[in-house]
């Protein structure tokens, strides 16, 4: 995976253009076009969805006639719109991220801290668990048949149904705070890691395995010198999926354990009070956090694969 991505652009252009020119020629244009298109569609949607509300608002205010311009302007400036406009979400994000002290419960930075700590903890738990399960499955043949169906089944249960039960059971056992949320994050993030690592640990080709056999290497030596390094690219691909899943798990757990705060709690509060702008701001903040986490994993991926000589 990494080799393709890395070799393609290098092979082509011999004289390197400036960074910005390169970006523009490469990806920047399509990215900008698609983003603008989405924002435009969003505005159209906001006007369409909020128009009814706005008409009744005009009527309630005793205003009998209104121009289209007034209507459009109104739909994009409501306090509790069905679909808030992009600039309203951006304003809310600015207000709750920059203008509010990070210690305040109204700050999204505060809630991001809560969500991220549970996410990272759960992700680490889940990754370790996922790797251990994969190692077991690869080395004990019977475990593939006996364990794998349960692992797959575990992911078919809707996490929204399962999360409250896990939180309640753990609370009964006096396990509170970050751990129940991390447990649910781990529950979602171990699966891609297991699947990816099973594949990765089995990726050495017969020739590479025969080579170890000619040295009469032990199973442990073959594992450490061949299977583990072969699995590294697979591991990072799974970790990227796993870290995003961990964030989703944490947010779902926070819907149940909302007293502690976090993006989930923020979403829940927003929906209680019809604060759609707040909901959308929290959603965007959560998505940005997921992007950030994936970027961190991708960065580690690049560093490690380059040092291992996988990337050219």
């Amino acid at each position: 995976m990494s080799t393709e991505a890395a070799s393609l652009p290098r092979a082509a252009a011999p004289p390197r253009p400036g960074v910005w020119a390169g970006l523009w020629e490469g990806h920047a244009l399509p990215v900008v076009v698609v983003s603008l298109l989405i924002v435009a569609l969003w505005y159209v949607g906001a006007v369409a969805m909020n128009a009814d509300l706005q008409r009744s608002a005009f009527e309630n205010a005793g205003q009998k006639t209104w121009t289209t311009a007034e209507l459009v302007a109104g739909t994009l400036a409501q306090e509790r719109p069905r679909l808030p406009a992009p600039h309203q979400v951006a304003e809310e994000l600015w207000k709750t991220v920059v203008d509010t002290a990070p210690t305040s419960k109204r700050s999204l930075v505060y809630h991001a801290g809560i969500t991220l700590s549970a996410t990272v903890l759960g992700f680490l738990f889940g990754s370790v668990l996922g790797i251990l399960l994969a190692v077991l499955i690869v080395h004990v043949r019977s475990l593939e048949r006996s364990l794998m169906p349960w692992i797959v089944a575990s992911q078919t249960i809707p996490i929204v149904a399962l999360a409250p039960m896990i939180v309640i059971i753990l609370n009964q056992l006096d396990v509170t705070g970050v751990v129940p949320k991390a447990a649910i994050a781990a529950y979602l993030s171990f699966f891609p890691v297991t699947v990816g690592m099973v594949k990765g640990l089995r990726s050495p080709d017969p020739l590479q395995l025969d080579l170890m056999r000619t040295y009469s290497a032990s199973r442990l030596q073959t594992f450490l010198a061949l299977r583990v390094p072969s699995s590294v690219p697979f591991l990072f691909a799974s970790l990227k999926v796993g870290v995003a899943a961990a964030l989703v798990g944490t947010v779902v757990a926070e819907l149940t354990q909302s007293a502690d705060g976090g993006f989930g709690a923020r979403l829940l509060a927003g929906s209680y009070y019809g604060q759609t702008v707040q909901i959308w701001a929290a959603l965007f903040a959560a998505a940005l956090c997921a992007c950030l986490l994936i970027a961190v994993v991708a960065f580690a991926d690049r560093i490690v694969l380059r040092r291992m000589g996988y990337t050219r």
């Binding site: 020739l207 025969d210 040295y215 061949l226 390094p229 072969s230 000589g309 996988y310």
Partner: peptide
Amino acid sequence: YGYVFQAPALYPWRTIARNVALPLEIM
């Protein structure tokens, strides 16, 4: 015995020196 396969079967994550050292590490 030392076995040389049809393909070099070098481990891509090891440098040339570390590939040559592989059997020595194992042994």
